[in-house]
Amino acid sequence: MEAGLRSLELTVRRRLDGLLQGNHVGLLPGPGSEPGEARPYQPGDDVRRMDWSVTARTTAPHVRETVADRELETWVAVDVSRSLDFGTADTDKRHLALAGLTAVTQLTVGGGNRIGAVATNGAETLRLPARGGLVHARGLVRRVATMPSAPEGVRGDLAAALDQLRRPPRRRGLVAVVSDFLGEPEWERSLRALSGRHDLLAIEVVDPRELELPDIGTVVLADPETGRQREVETTPLLRREFAAAASAHRDRVAAALRRCGAAQLTLRTDSDWVADIVRFVVARKHAWSGGGAGRGRPA
């Protein structure tokens, strides 16, 4: 477990490190404490902010502006329900969810930033307080990775995990949601309630067999959360109907996330998920750089 998590962290860090530096605005009220630009002194300015070096060079009194502290608080809601114990390609969805969590921790840790998590399997909820530092970030990923699956018959409850991020109210920051988003979007109301105070990122993990069935004759399909099974014949008609239903479901999820104002990153078990994350981050950084003044959007 330790070797696997360390390898995962190194893989993410090698490709993503440094992509998001400085991409969020100050989150603390008031003038802050970081040094900014120097400007000529004006009557009423605090003399304690006099910049004597600039004053000496220009022979005119100058004060040094300050900017808000750039501290970001990130919370990650992680769905670790039984439906993630599935994968038919290069990896399974649970590993992919951990990869998404690791990427978020690597992109936000450092600089006084803090990260916390709420993980749920439907039967129990793991709450990890927001703290700073790489040691805490590694421990957070480890605790989520070792969280057991729920007993058979227990469905995940993403909405309950999101509600825990609303109470008590938390300082403005970034909320990332890692899930396969199967089932109806009953979590939409909870996620939308968070959008008024936080920037939102949804990381969807997908396996190709959830999108279309192969032509393999008779197959037994099982619901990993309820344990129900059904034997079906993968006829052309069934495969078309299955693909259409899967596409319609993903459209509903995407529409719900858009209504909540969440950026969506999709990771597939049959693709280069690191490259997908890099493309997403670079695109978000480019969009942020071209944005106007006002509240920044963490990539």
Rank of each mutant, 00 (worst) to 15 (best):
M1R: 03
S7H: 06
T11A: 14
R15F: 01
R15K: 05
G26Q: 09
P29E: 03
G30V: 02
E34K: 10
P40N: 00
P43S: 07
R49D: 11
V54E: 12
V54Y: 12
V54S: 10
T58H: 10
T58G: 05
A60K: 15
R64C: 05
E65F: 02
T66I: 05
A68V: 10
D69R: 15
R70E: 14
R70K: 15
V78C: 14
D79C: 11
S81T: 09
T88G: 03
D90L: 12
A97W: 13
L101G: 00
T108L: 07
G110A: 09
A117Y: 01
A119C: 14
N121I: 02
A123P: 10
A123S: 15
L128M: 00
G132W: 01
G133I: 07
L134N: 04
H136P: 02
R138T: 02
G139D: 09
A145C: 13
P151R: 06
R155E: 07
R155N: 00
A159M: 04
L162A: 07
G173P: 12
D180E: 06
F181A: 00
L182V: 05
E184L: 05
E188N: 00
E188K: 09
L191W: 12
R192Y: 04
A193K: 04
R197L: 06
L200C: 01
I203L: 11
V205R: 08
D207R: 06
R209D: 03
L213F: 01
D215V: 03
A222V: 15
R230I: 02
V232F: 11
V232E: 11
T235L: 07
L237S: 08
R240H: 13
E241Y: 11
H249L: 02
H249Y: 04
D251W: 06
V253E: 10
A254V: 07
R258E: 15
C260I: 02
C260M: 09
T266H: 04
D270K: 09
D272T: 00
A275T: 09
V281C: 08
V282T: 12
V282L: 14
K285Y: 08
W288H: 14
S289P: 03
P298G: 04
